[in-house]
Nucleic acid binder design. Structure first.
Length: 712
DNA sequence: GTATAGTCACCTTAT
DNA sequence: GTGACTATAC
């Protein structure tokens, strides 16, 4: 069966799928049929006689790769399972595992997930006696952030701190010592973190020319999806694997770059033609996903960016409803409004074609409560992961020890439930067992009789090679501890363990099972609900699409996130994030702007400023609705957007007047101020309780928390 | 060194 | 309502 490609694709897409034999960069706007293009190119290559084994497809999630391979297989009517597909990290892991000896890991190695890494970092910090008794000392999360940012951006920690966390500059030296200690710890216990996978892979390719040759011979055709979100080392890996003029097709969209915080470098896209000789450039600009009404809005969002994008999406779908901006009275009523909106939309679309998107995982909590109350099933993407739950990690620790007896992180977990054994004793026991210190072991076994059982259990496990089988034994051993450790919700956790066993059955090696869990958190989707509303962070929504999209909490501090705005260019990333969110919608787009946000710190609702990205939008590209105190939602007939701010400010004024705390709008303070990043600026307005709107020459209007300002 | 009860500050985003 | 840290007693 031959496929009529010309009939299935537009001319730019066709050009992309027919390209072969040299590097090409496909700049694919949102909804421009990027996935379709990759899928058809896969199919085209195989149809033209390329063995699937010679193709490498690198994507952002493993699921994306699987779906593309499945679709290509369906088109061709044959199985493409021979194709290598996955994330950079999982591909790197596979190669590293097969060559563990070249890395100096003779007894295997194990992976650290984010939480593991944080705990190691904290341990190192404590062992160096840094920040003792200092409550305001940077937390493990911040410490690891600095360390991995430094590695991903390939700049010194001091430079990262100076640029992105200037308030921590006095700790820069500490951070360096902690980073060094962290590296040493990982080496000593045969542990790799996410970043190590990429860098050790690169090292391996440099040190083992025969391996590089082998990989090059095998992977003659490389495709890389979401190229705008690759970092420097990933770009070098592609270059090294493909060679300067190999058959490599990178697909991406500079306007959708949303992982700069992780070291992603848009320059990779821009430099592609420099790094790869005679790279062909192909642009996909026609949008097949959204209505023109939605694209009008997304084009406006992008137009406000400081970094200009050469992008203007267009669609044939002219008859679309205007995107709606809904102003609920508070974030609590917002949840109610979203539920009502979902109920209405559900009459038109299946639930899984409707998504609610948000900036950060916690923002969906009130909504989750409201949904449960009315019995609407939902599936959440992003936020806490299945395998991060304590009981899952407990059980996995036994498996880790089987593969890497030096894994101290796992030892601590396994030993922790034994009464009388704390972190110190756990370390000692682990070391004694590793070094065969019989004397200490005998002594300790006498003191902690439970240890005997644990060791017997571990010994019996060592015969198990398949993860399903091993997990069965572990679950039996862990059972009594589960009930003891988690008396409140232990049935629920038991169900989680059963689910884990189900997943494990599909794997033939423990290494792959463990790696997939840490490298690809959404395993639980295998038991995904059939028809459920989708809740997702914007980051996790990348590459997906729905008939109807609702975005919540579009207010200053939340979207854009106040945590994300350390440097001027960070605002653009937040803007691109909103762009990604809005371009997920095919037919219907609704933006929620609550007038107040509940503040847990002082347990009151505080007035919120609408997201600056919305304030810029021309009045005719959206329809505005407001929630009244008594009357529910009303359409804003006048569309008097300019009154918006004044109404809000009078609301603010009222609240401030009732507030006994000091610092209301004081005209004498509305002078000049200085900000570490934006420089000197004129204060335009005070936004109670603690923010100012300031005009910074060159940067425009910004809302800044008073703590970050020096008043002049 | 460990267990436990109490106090205080806190939630980006994710391979 | 929780996780991270401290003080106190075993």
């Amino acid at each position: 069966m031959s496929i009529d490609f010309a009939n299935e694709l537009n001319s730019a897409q066709l050009e992309a799928i027919m390209h072969q034999g040299s590097p090409a960069l496909v700049i694919a706007g949102a909804g421009s049929g990027k996935t379709r293009t990759i899928v058809y190119r896969l199919a085209r290559l195989v149809q033209d006689g390329i063995p699937p084994e010679n193709i490498l497809l690198l994507t952002f999630t493993r699921k994306a790769a699987q779906e593309m391979l499945l679709r290509a297989g369906t088109i061709l009517g044959r199985n493409l399972s021979g194709t290598s597909g996955g994330t950079f990290h999982s591909f790197a892991f596979g190669v590293l595992r097969r060559n563990a000896r070249c890395l100096g890991f003779d007894t295997g190695f194990t992976l650290l997930d984010r939480a593991d890494s944080e705990n190691v970092v904290k341990e190192v910090k404590d062992s160096l006696a840094l920040g003792k008794g200092d409550r305001s000392y940077p937390k493990k999360n911040t410490l690891l952030d600095m360390i991995t940012k430094s590695r991903n951006k390939e700049r010194g920690i001091d430079s990262i701190v100076e640029n992105e966390a200037f308030h921590l500059s006095s700790y820069a030296e500490d951070f360096q010592s902690i980073a060094d200690g962290y590296t040493t710890f990982k080496q000593r216990h045969a542990l790799l973190d996410y970043d190590d996978l990429l860098f050790r892979f690169e090292e391996l390719l440099l040190n083992e020319p025969s391996l590089l040759e082998e990989l090059r011979t095998r992977y003659r055709h490389i495709m890389v999806d979401e190229y705008q979100d690759t970092n420097k080392v990933q770009a070098r890996l592609v270059r090294r694997l493909s060679g300067e003029c190999g058959d490599v097709v990178a697909v991406g969209d500079d306007a959708q770059s949303i992982y700069a915080f992780r070291g992603a470098d848009v320059a990779n896209i821009l430099d592609f033609p420099k790094i790869f000789k005679d790279a062909k450039l192909i642009r996909l600009e026609k949008n097949y996903r959204s209505t023109q009404a939605i694209l009008n809005l997304t084009n406006h969002i992008l137009a406000g960016a400081q970094t200009k994008f050469d992008k203007h999406l267009y669609s044939d779908r002219q008859n679309g409803a205007l995107p709606r901006v809904v102003h609920p009275l508070s974030d609590q009523t917002q949840a109610k409004q979203v539920v009502e909106e979902v109920i209405k939309l559900a009459k038109k679309y299946p639930l899984h074609e409707i998504a609610v998107l948000f900036r950060a995982g916690y923002q969906s909590y009130p909504l989750e409560v409201a949904l449960s109350r009315v019995g609407i099933g939902y599936q959440k993407y992003g936020g806490l992961r299945f395998h991060e739950a304590a009981h899952i990690k407990d059980v996995l620790a036994y498996l880790r020890l089987l593969r890497n007896p030096a894994d101290l992180v796992a030892w601590r977990r396994v030993l922790a439930p034994i009464k009388g054994v704390g972190p110190k004793t756990a370390d000692r026991i682990a070391n004694a067992r590793l070094n065969g210190d019989e004397k200490y072991m005998a002594k300790t076994l006498k003191r902690f009789p439970d240890l005997k059982q644990l060791f017997n259990h571990l010994d019996s496990l060592s015969h198990a090679t398949r993860p399903g089988q091993a997990l069965e034994q572990i679950a039996a051993f862990y059972q009594p501890m589960l009930a003891e450790l988690y008396p409140d919700d232990y049935p629920k956790r038991q169900a989680g363990l059963d689910q884990l066993s189900q997943i494990a059955i599909n794997y033939s090696t423990i290494d792959d099972f463990l790696a997939d869990l840490t490298l690809d958190g959404d395993q639980e989707e295998e038991v995904r609900k059939e028809n459920a509303l989708v809740l997702s962070t914007v980051h996790s929504s990348k590459g997906l699409e729905w008939k109807a999209v609702l975005i919540i909490d579009l207010v200053e501090d939340r979207f854009p996130s106040k945590r994300a705005l350390a440097r001027p260019e960070d605002l653009d990333e937040e803007r691109r994030l909103l762009y990604v969110a809005c371009t997920r919608a095919k037919d219907s787009l609704t933006l929620f702007v609550p007038a107040t946000i509940y503040n847990r710190f002082n347990a009151v609702s505080e007035p919120a400023t609408p997201s600056p990205f919305l304030a810029e939008l021309p009045a005719d590209c959206v329809e505005i609705w407001r929630e009244g105190y008594a009357s529910g939602l009303n359409k804003d007939r006048a569309q008097a957007r300019n009154n918006d701010n004044s109404a809000l400010e009078s609301l603010n004024a009222n609240i401030t007047a009732d507030d006994p705390s000091p610092s209301p709008t004081d005209p004498s303070r509305l002078g000049m101020c200085r900000h570490k990043i934006f420089g000197q600026g004129k204060i335009v307005a005070h936004i109670p309780p603690n923010k100012y709107r300031i005009n910074f020459p060159g940067f425009g209007l910004k809302v800044i928390v008073a703590d970050y300002l020096e008043m002049l």
